[in-house]
């Protein structure tokens, strides 16, 4: 196949060989190539530079790039592991790998902890949980009195903050989610099992000879 395809993929800064990415993740080579189809469509939606910026990420999630969302922002920052302000293809595949149904449970628990540890101090603090609750309420136009928000926080910290120091550390988090497995639901995307049927056009753009592997 050839030069034409290779030249095309060089326009994607941070593009990595699907065989290499498959060897590092739960994805097959075909699945990595199918993810590239998704990556191409998101990364070209505003600026066709082969990278996903925050506006493009929010556009893919909300169908509008202007809508700022605390949670989408936080996920973007966790995908952008090199903190470049953009997500390249390697970042995209490795981050989505955590959401694969076959990814290790510990990786999901760890990613989710980082997601909620907004300022990255290694603890989920009460003020962070309050900030997230307020963001959720404004997003859903749900109104709750401050006393209700505080009572939700009281109950949550009674359950999750075993040493009652006002913040949830990693061990407390692991223990808390083991008793509340529903909290890990957002960390698994069943879609990732069917990625090759969702994006079948990867077959026409494949650079790998035996795409079944």
């Amino acid at each position: 196949m050839g030069c034409f395809q290779s030249k095309g993929r060089r326009q994607f800064p941070g593009y990595e060989d699907p065989v290499f990415l498959a060897s590092q993740t739960a994805f097959t080579v075909s699945e990595v190539e199918a993810l590239f189809e998704l990556f191409k469509s998101i990364s070209s939606s505003v600026i066709d530079d082969g990278l996903i910026n925050k506006e493009e990420f929010q556009l893919a999630l909300f169908k509008t790039g202007k809508k700022e969302n605390l949670f989408a922002n936080r996920i973007f920052n966790l995908f952008d592991v090199k903190q470049k302000g953009v997500i390249d293809f390697g970042d995209f595949v490795r981050a989505l790998n955590v959401f694969h149904p076959n990814a290790p449970h510990e990786d999901k628990v760890d990613f989710c902890f980082k997601l909620y540890d907004l300022d990255g101090t290694g603890f989920i603090e009460r003020k962070e949980v309050k900030q997230m609750l307020i963001a959720l309420l404004s997003e859903s136009e749900m109104r709750l009195a401050d006393e209700v928000v505080e009572s939700i926080l009281d109950k949550t910290f009674q359950e999750a903050d075993a040493n009652q120091d006002g913040k949830i550390d990693k061990t407390e988090w692991e223990n808390f989610v083991s008793h509340n497995p529903s909290l890990m639901k957002i960390m698994t995307l069943p879609y990732l099992r069917d990625i090759t049927t969702t994006f079948p056009s990867f077959v026409f753009h494949s650079e790998v000879e035996d795409i079944a592997t």
């Binding site: 605390l70 949980v129 997003e139 939700i152 926080l153 509340n180 957002i186 879609y191």
Partner: peptide, 25 residues
């Protein structure tokens, strides 16, 4: 006495956390 929900159960319903939407055409 009203049932008080867990904060993280509420937070995890945010649309911004639903990456599944990326795969819905």
């Amino acid at each position: 006495r009203p049932v008080v929900m867990n904060a993280f159960d509420l937070i995890s319903t945010s649309q911004g956390l639903d990456l599944g939407i990326l795969f819905e055409k």
